[in-house]
Amino acid sequence: MNMAHAEELLTENLDPVLGSLSWETSEWVGDIQVGTHHVRLLIDLDEEDHSRERQIESIAYAKALLPKVLKNEAQLRRQAADEIAEAAGSEASEKDRRRYASEVDSAAAAMEPQVLCISFPDGGYLECRDATQAFYGASTVVIRFDDEGNYEEAEVDFE
């Protein structure tokens, strides 16, 4: 990267929707409110092109996607809990399958958002921790969503 190109990059951005953002290598970093939780916001430029124009485009993309994700956030957690319970139940006894299914709402409610990553230009993910540690222990639940804020899949990252 030549010096002229490096000088063109934005280093900070103050946005009325996204708040204060700082540029770190290939992503914008900030903080945002998701429900009652204060979470780390990442706007990740997936591509190699980290030009000023792409930086600005990524902010516009995040501003358009954020309201959709916030609107769907509780449903994203619910669908993740449902999918995880179904996967766990597939190897369990009938009694345990019923128990997993009965705990989906509690498990979804226990997921506290920690990080919201918007991957420019194609969706992103929400990282949650189980506040109670009753459902997922000390692991992180990663909930992926598409460019409309709709649920795609979930995974549990055990530590």
Rank of each mutant, 00 (worst) to 15 (best):
V115M: 08
A62E: 02
E103G: 03
A87T: 09
A62Y: 02
D146Q: 00
A80C: 08
D96E: 13
E127P: 08
E86P: 05
I84F: 05
Y100W: 13
D146N: 14
D146H: 01
H50A: 01
R129P: 00
R54C: 01
Y100A: 11
R129T: 06
R129D: 11
E103A: 09
A107H: 01
E112A: 14
P67V: 03
A138R: 15
Q55E: 08
D49Y: 14
L116S: 05
D147V: 05
R98D: 11
M111G: 06
E103K: 07
A92I: 08
K63P: 03
A134Q: 13
C128R: 00
A109V: 12
E94R: 10
A131K: 14
Y136F: 14
L45G: 09
R98L: 11
I56D: 08
E94H: 02
P113S: 07
S93E: 02
S90N: 15
A131R: 14
S139L: 08
T132V: 03
V141K: 01
F135P: 07
F120W: 05
Q114E: 09
F145Y: 05
A108I: 12
S58Q: 00
D146K: 04
H50V: 13
E57L: 05
S90I: 06
R129V: 13
K63W: 02
Q133P: 09
V142H: 06
E148V: 01
E94C: 05
D130Q: 08
A138L: 15
S93A: 04
E148T: 04
C128I: 11
A92V: 10
G123E: 07
F120E: 05
A81P: 04
K68L: 15
A101R: 01
L116E: 08
Q133A: 14
A80E: 03
K68S: 14
M111N: 07
G149T: 12
Q79E: 09
D46S: 12
E127K: 12
D82K: 11
I56M: 13
A80K: 03
P67D: 07
A92E: 13
A134S: 11
Y136M: 02
A62N: 03
Q114D: 15
E152I: 07
F145E: 04
R144H: 12
R52V: 06
A85T: 08
A87P: 02
V156H: 09
T140G: 00
D157A: 15
E91N: 13
Y100P: 06
D146L: 07
E53M: 11
H50I: 12
N72Y: 00
A110N: 01
R98N: 13
A138T: 14
L116V: 10
E152P: 01
H50D: 11
E73M: 10
L65Y: 05
P113F: 11
E48A: 12
V142W: 03
A80G: 07
K68R: 15
D96V: 11
R97K: 15
D130W: 00
A131I: 12
Y151R: 09
R52N: 09
K71L: 14
S106K: 08
M111V: 09
K95C: 04
E91Q: 08
F120L: 11
R52F: 10
R144F: 03
E112T: 15
A154D: 01
I118K: 02
R97T: 04
E94D: 09
Q79C: 04
Y100F: 14
S119E: 00
R54W: 00
